[in-house]
């Protein structure tokens, strides 16, 4: 009865509707206002309310349309075509993370509207990515009857964008993460931390190439490194930069312009 398209959309519309109500209330609207689309009474922050309510309306209408047209129902199609047999339904060929990710994106979006614009942008970015990827996946799933070919078709279309974006994301994550660590610790600490990171990376590589480590072990090592770098980065960012300007001011007052670092080099 309900195929997965309307199911998803209905779920989405409910979340968006709830979000809109909640958001309207939080930002100072009253109950009647938010429930009546602002017909009587305030809705709080207009932009966020409109966005969320708009999302609700659009998804609700789409869900309705899909349900009404019985999109994707094999039995209906068979009946329409006048055949006795139900055509074989192609099951999804690979696990898809896009549903989960889109929920995450939607959550971010709502959180962003309510809390901080960082989340808003993150949510938008995630949703854009999900939209593109999911569209391409759905399209390619129908390109031919052969799942492997379909996957390749999709790869060929999206790989030119995916590869550099993934690479850039990975590099950016490492760069930002490690530099936060450097900035958080002391000057000597940065050297030590850098040395440790590099040694860890290189040492792990040497170990992995020398031993005949199973794949799981390699994955674990890589994941461990990633957790350390990103976790360290997050911790570093929270701790904040060590006080850099402070030194300069201090020195300025007693000695015309020379910095502590300058003295350190000459010592």
């Amino acid at each position: 009865m309900f195929t997965w398209g309307p199911k998803y959309l209905i779920g989405f519309s409910f979340v968006a509707w709830g979000g809109a109500l909640l958001y309207g209330l939080i930002t100072g609207g009253d109950i009647v206002g938010v429930a009546s689309f602002g017909y009587k009474g305030g809705v709080g922050d207009h932009l966020g309310y409109t966005l969320l309510m708009g999302a609700f309306l659009i998804t609700a209408v789409l869900a309705g349309v899909l349900f009404a047209t019985r999109d994707g129902e094999a039995e209906t199609l068979a009946r329409l075509a006048g055949t006795d047999n139900v055509p074989q339904v192609t099951p999804p060929t690979a696990p898809s993370y896009w549903g989960a990710l889109s929920a995450f994106g939607a959550a971010c979006l709502m959180l962003g509207v309510a809390v901080s614009s960082v989340f808003l942008y993150l949510g938008i970015a995630v949703l854009v990515v999900v939209a593109i990827e999911w569209l391409a996946l759905t399209w390619s799933d129908r390109a031919t009857g052969d799942p492997a070919t379909n996957r390749d078709v999709k790869d060929r279309m999206l790989a030119p964008i995916e590869i550099p974006m993934l690479g850039a994301l990975a590099v950016a994550a490492i760069m930002i993460g490690i530099s936060r660590i450097f900035l958080a610790v002391s000057k000597t600490g940065a050297v030590v931390a850098g040395g440790l990171v590099a040694t860890a990376i290189f040492g792990t590589a040497v170990l992995l190439t020398q031993t005949n480590a199973p794949r799981r072990f390699i994955s674990a090592a890589v994941a461990g490194l990633a957790v350390v770098v990103l976790g360290g980065g997050v911790v570093g960012a929270i701790v904040g930069e060590r006080e850099l300007e402070h030194h300069e001011d201090e020195i300025h007052s007693e000695d015309s312009g020379s910095t502590e670092e300058g003295m350190m080099i000459h010592e």
């Binding site: 990975a170 590099v171 490492i174 760069m175 930002i176 993460g177 490690i178 530099s179 450097f182 900035l183 940065a190 850098g194 990171v197 590099a198 990376i201 290189f202 490194l225 930069e241 850099l244 300007e245 030194h247 300069e248 910095t259 670092e261």
Partner: peptide, 21 residues
């Protein structure tokens, strides 16, 4: 790639400190 990214992290760190100073 990881080492290169670490190098770049060092660059970011260096630029940040220089800028702050």
């Amino acid at each position: 790639m990881l080492l290169g990214a670490t190098f770049m992290a060092g660059q970011v760190y260096e630029f940040t400190t220089f800028y702050r100073e």
